[in-house]
Nucleic acid binder design. Structure first.
Lengths: 355, 355
DNA sequence: CTGAAAGCGCTAACAT
DNA sequence: ATGTTAGCGCTTTCAG
């Protein structure tokens, strides 16, 4: 009778949730009838069903998804692994996943690997124990390790932007090579001959692919100075800023810089302008991703748009198809082609600057 | 014997996970012994324990967290509600939460409300069914509705940045009033007299509080022009850009603009520069949050730093204390004071510009 | 040290 | 239309 010793909002500690048995007792029926009534089974008399639902509602009853999962062998939950949710790219992808997952009645278990292969495997391990119905791995950083793990897994996995050589797994990804080529061709068409690439030293395959696309485009441009200038950041703005400093101090004077991603480009922009140089007059800068912030940079960033949200959505759609056995298996490799978004961070090189 | 009809990585559809019973059979012991051995209970003979663990490992056994939860009445899972994970502010907070949750052995179930009160309640409802051990709600947009829900909830809830009048719930938040006051005082000290505020029309209490802090500082500055100019965005960069346009076209010529948050400020920056005006020479701009990108803006943004990650961490720490009954109940209200970070987007007004 | 048995909350035959 | 029973995979007494 002294229930109110806690502040109003203090959760009653350990208050046991009401179960169908409790309701059954109150309604004077069996627990199966309660179970049926609550799931709107036609097999129960409308009147008793109504009575049961009333009791359930007033008692604050909530089915136990855990008990239900134990029998159904389905948790209606999917696990999502990202390297780091603070990365706006990942955040957008997760947002797309969550959206579709929600529409299909799935909940999302989120975990980040901090780009640590060991943690990444630990996360998958934990997902298995929690009996998630499927897993989506965004920008896996442990490539080959996964192939092994995959075959021991009995739940479907969909990768996003995980370009493993020979990867025979479901994946949705951007065509990095083609994207980088597009961007580079844009720079070339503008008349640049002295190009630089700021890579991501932790970018693994996608870094290699973007660099490949970059070099690929250069191959066909005899006027371009060779070899191209290449420096490395770490995929963050701070890394991009630092790499740009090295570039500026190297005396190589590129007139255009293709950055691994938008964050790197934003860092590069910052360094360039800090030094009193102008973009695009003195140096053109391009990114890759088209983050929400990129169109508001100064100057607005020319970049290759990845449908981040869309890729997340598609990954979840594939997973859903995999999970509902009544549909045909989806394609394994789903490659998106990005769109070149030309904004004001690129322009023809100013002749006066040619050295 | 035709097991290999699927590609190597194709998940064996519906392959049933191995259970302790399976292991028990193989090891010729009872399933309780297996259960004990697997949890390193001292009550089992080292030799049999070893044997059991070997079988478990080779068979790829994974405890079923769902079965375990059914008996333990704990899921070791917490639910996190955000308005939108694409918002970098939320992403940072979630990152902090995830970090600490992980350290304490909790998984996080993430769901976004899209700022829709109905969805927000739906999410909490779903969390209840899934029997999460606790809930963290970030920037709740349904304020008072929650108070009601709260008292019917039997699991602890911690709010982040939810300033409900009279909120008697666990919460960690930033002192919006003091923060806004700090920023405004900085602007005033620089000599600005014609200040504007770009609010967030969906910002609810935090918008009101930041505006209050802004006006509060102005009250004590007799030199400041009154009433202050106030326009509204929606918390996004696009909204900030739009609001800034209105401001510029209103002919009120503010020399300093205090923005609701960094995203709004970034949008404002973009509009100002697009019009050929300079920051800070023509107009000073300040934000609120200090997003990772803000120090790389051009010019780098003067703003009030919120320890986003730290707030997420603290919220999870509080939840953990609430969950482990053996510690004293934490404080209910945990208010952070932000730090003013002065960068290059603010400066004294140039006299030539004074109208 | 180990096994038998009960039970967590629910669903799903199988009987009425 | 409803009740009975079994069982999902695990932990936990309670007996040996």
């Amino acid at each position: 009778m002294h229930e109110a010793i806690f502040p109003l909002s203090f959760p009653a500690p350990g208050r046991k949730p009401v179960s169908i048995k409790d309701i059954a007792r109150q309604a004077d029926v069996s627990h199966s009838t309660v179970s049926r009534a609550l799931r709107n089974s036609p097999l129960v008399h409308p009147e008793t069903a109504e009575k049961i639902r009333a009791i359930a509602a007033s008692s604050g009853y909530r089915v136990s998804a855990v008990a239900r999962s134990l029998v159904s062998q389905r948790t209606q939950t999917i696990g999502v692994v990202v390297t780091n949710i603070g990365d706006p790219f990942n955040a957008e992808v997760v947002s797309g996943i969550e959206d579709v997952a929600n529409a299909f009645g799935y909940s999302v278990l989120l975990a980040s690997s901090q780009s640590d292969p060991v943690r990444e495997l630990g996360v998958v391990h934990s997902f298995e124990e929690r009996r998630v119905d499927g897993i989506i791995v965004n920008s896996s950083r442990v490539g080959s390790l996964y192939q092994e793990l995959l075959s021991s897994l009995s739940i479907p996995v969909v990768f996003i932007n995980n370009h493993n050589p020979g990867g025979f797994a479901y994946s949705v990804s951007i065509d990095d090579v083609a994207g980088a080529r597009q961007v580079t061709e844009h720079l070339l068409a503008l008349g640049h001959t002295r190009l630089a690439y700021i890579g991501d030293r932790f970018g693994l395959q996608s870094n290699l692919d973007r660099m490949a696309g970059f070099q690929d485009a250069l191959e066909r441009a005899p006027q371009a100075r060779r070899p191209p200038i290449i420096v490395y950041g770490d995929g963050t703005s701070a890394g991009g800023a630092q790499a740009m400093k090295e570039l500026l101090e190297s005396g190589q004077n590129p007139t255009a810089v293709f950055c691994y991603n938008d964050r790197t480009a934003i860092g590069a922009l910052s360094t360039i302008q800090e030094r009193g140089l102008r973009v695009p007059e003195d140096i053109s800068v391009t990114g890759f991703d088209d983050l929400p912030v990129s169109s508001f940079c100064h100057p607005p960033l020319t970049t290759l748009r990845q449908p981040m949200n869309g890729m997340g959505r598609q990954a979840m759609q594939i997973l859903e198809q995999l999970l509902s056995r009544n549909s045909q298996p989806p394609d394994m490799a789903n490659k998106f082609i990005g769109n070149l978004i030309v904004r004001q961070s690129t322009a023809a090189p100013s002749n006066g600057k040619q050295s």
